[in-house]
Design a protein around this nucleic acid. Structure first.
Lengths: 153, 153
DNA sequence: TATTGTTATACTCTATAACTATA
DNA sequence: TATAGTTATAGAGTATAACAATA
């Protein structure tokens, strides 16, 4: 008489993901998705998703930056930036001005509204770090940032 | 007479992304994209993208796992897993068998072909870690994994 | 000839609602 | 009534090719 636990096709009680959890790629992706979903949630009050936030941030810290420079800095493809810039311009967060010495290029500048919005948004982003990394000490957060940059920079 | 550098609308020589580089979310996303693009490149020989690799890995290490369990473990929505499972089944990498004591569920099992493929793919994935993290010591890789898990687990 | 910005478009990934079969 | 698997579909994100204007 077979014991009750003997089955030719057993069921899985708890899924073992220990192998995947040893891989950098798996952990980086899972962590990034967690951080980003919290970012989306808390930045909704400013009407900014992560990409819009980073574009605005680069424009505020680099007034006059061109689309090409933005694309290179943020790893965005030029066709995908066009609609983004138009959206931010329509919201009066940025302005497009002629480039000082390249007739092909256009400089992107923050408006007063854009600067005011980002001043608040960047404070929120900083507070969000603490919340997202609540299980990490400030020292560990700094270590994490340093190690991540060694991968992509 | 104005100096040549005096411009009302100056150009940006080099884009300053130092603010964004202090944010966990920005770094996690950029690092994840770098790691994943290398993974895609090196796993193409097996015909597996990152999601297919993780599904296959969980099935191999948890024979009989159900779709629901897979979804919960890998953070995939059930409708998006359906096509994935069909694809892997068509490639004879997994098999669907009746669940031992739940008529609604279906157990996913690796075939011999699937197990053989994943044995090789997991070796490649391990080698890829070393390549992707060439600027990190084994100790730093371990630290990075631990810190990332504190965020999403 | 090369580059900036742009349009059009396709492909992938992700998300939601609703259905069926079973518990 | 709740859950597993599925279908259909919508939306977001990402990709390539090609064009006009300027360098």
């Amino acid at each position: 008489m077979p014991s009750p636990t003997k089955k030719s096709v057993p069921a899985i009680d708890e899924v073992d993901t220990s192998y995947l959890e040893t891989l950098i790629g798996y952990n980086a992706r899972r962590a990034a998705l967690t951080v980003i979903s919290q970012f989306v949630e808390h930045m909704a009050v400013y009407g900014l998703n992560p990409v819009e936030f980073s574009v605005m941030s680069v424009v505020v810290h680099n007034p006059g930056v061109t689309s090409r420079q933005l694309c290179a800095a943020l790893n965005i493809l030029p066709p995908n930036l066009v609609g983004l810039v138009q959206l931010l311009e329509n919201r009066r967060l940025i302005e497009r001005k002629p480039h000082p010495h390249d007739g092909r290029a256009v400089g992107l500048h923050p408006t007063q509204i854009g600067e005011a919005l980002m001043a608040k948004a960047e404070v929120t982003a900083r507070e969000l770090e603490i919340h997202t990394c609540s299980k990490l000490t400030p020292n560990q957060i700094q270590t994490l940032v340093t190690l991540l940059q060694k991968i992509y920079l």
